[in-house]
Design a protein around this nucleic acid. Structure first.
Length: 307
DNA sequence: CGGTTTTGACCCGCGC
DNA sequence: GCGCGGGTCAAAACCG
């Protein structure tokens, strides 16, 4: 239950702090990708996503949004190589396009954050307090705690990509300088406080920017622990925003992952991820019995309700 | 009937 | 201090 403590030195993210983008220029991209997919301790591996380097192409963009300044060590937490970017930065990232497919309704971006978790006290999503104290309850002066975030861009016509988890929309806001609204979703699991934000790039309407905040403390409906059959499953189920959608044979994929890898101190801590679900996700805080979600022993296309 | 979506109001942090 | 924009709440509507 407290495993998270180790893997996650507790990151405290407050909205006040700025999200820093660690370097990562265009030049670092390719390297990043390589690192991302090749390195033994690649990020994906850390996440439990067993992907062959080839799949690097399937990514459009995957960025971890985090706050390095607050917890520099976290920078390396994500398998020692992550790049941190501000949401805005992500939005600005160039997008690669797999050819835009889209009708696939089963994509899956469920990258729940990983790199850092909050200490039990401020837990991330489960088992603990919600990442953000409701404004009504939040004391004055108390900063909002922000969870580590991950954002990635996918080329898709559907806004809400399937990722194996069930989400409930709790808000929508118009985005400045963008004709497209931003939608806010929250994991329907009562113990899970993971949130995700979905919006379309104003620059390229075909691109969906999904930002995850927090870490799931349960297993996805579609991809229960150990349920990964292969990387594709993993891919489809855990991370990628829809690799299925992303990947389009024949289309060009720009392997541009704005990740600047600062493989500094890859912490000994493991990468905390929720991808861990596919591995051996430590039961959150409460030894919860397999829930309906966790029971699905097979890859069941979440496909279910997209609405 | 229960769960989800919609949507306007409200809160909060930040920049000026 | 004020205005703006992002994020969240919560009641009502909607849907299966």
């Amino acid at each position: 239950m407290e495993d998270k403590e180790e893997s996650n030195p507790g990151a405290e993210f407050t909205s006040e702090s700025s999200w820093t983008l660690s370097g990562g220029g265009p030049d670092s991209v390719s390297n990043s990708v390589d690192y991302f997919f090749d390195r033994e301790g690649s990020v994906l591996s850390e996440f439990g996503w067993d992907l062959p380097a080839d799949h690097a192409d399937e990514f459009v963009r995957f960025v971890e949004l985090d706050r390095t300044e607050a917890r520099p060590e976290l920078a390396g937490n994500f398998s020692g190589s992550q790049s941190y970017a501000a949401a805005d930065d992500v939005a600005r990232c160039s997008v690669s396009n797999p050819g835009g497919s889209a009708d696939v309704s089963t994509s899956n971006p469920s990258v729940s954050s990983c790199s850092s978790e909050d200490p039990p006290e401020k837990s991330t999503g489960c088992g603990g307090k919600p990442p953000e104290i409701p404004s009504k309850v939040r004391k004055k002066g108390q900063k909002r705690i922000r969870q580590p975030r991950f954002a990635f861009m996918t080329k898709s016509e559907v806004d809400h990509l399937e990722d194996g988890y069930r989400w409930r929309k709790y808000g929508q806001k118009a985005v400045k300088n963008s004709p497209f609204p931003r939608s806010y979703y929250r994991c329907t699991n009562s113990k899970c406080t993971v949130k995700k934000r979905v919006e379309r790039s104003s620059e390229d309407p075909t691109v969906v920017i999904t930002t995850y905040e927090g870490q799931h403390c349960h297993h996805s409906v579609a991809f229960p622990r150990g349920g990964l059959i292969n990387h594709e499953a993993a891919f489809g189920g855990q991370l990628t925003p829809a690799v299925s959608q992303l990947y389009h044979p024949g289309s060009h994929l720009h392997r541009e992952i704005p990740l600047n890898i600062s493989q500094s101190q890859s912490q000994a801590h493991q990468a905390p991820i929720d991808a861990g679900e596919s591995r051996s996700e430590p039961e959150p805080t409460t030894p919860k019995p397999p829930t309906d979600e966790g029971l699905l022993g097979d890859i069941v296309p979440p496909g279910m309700r997209n609405r």
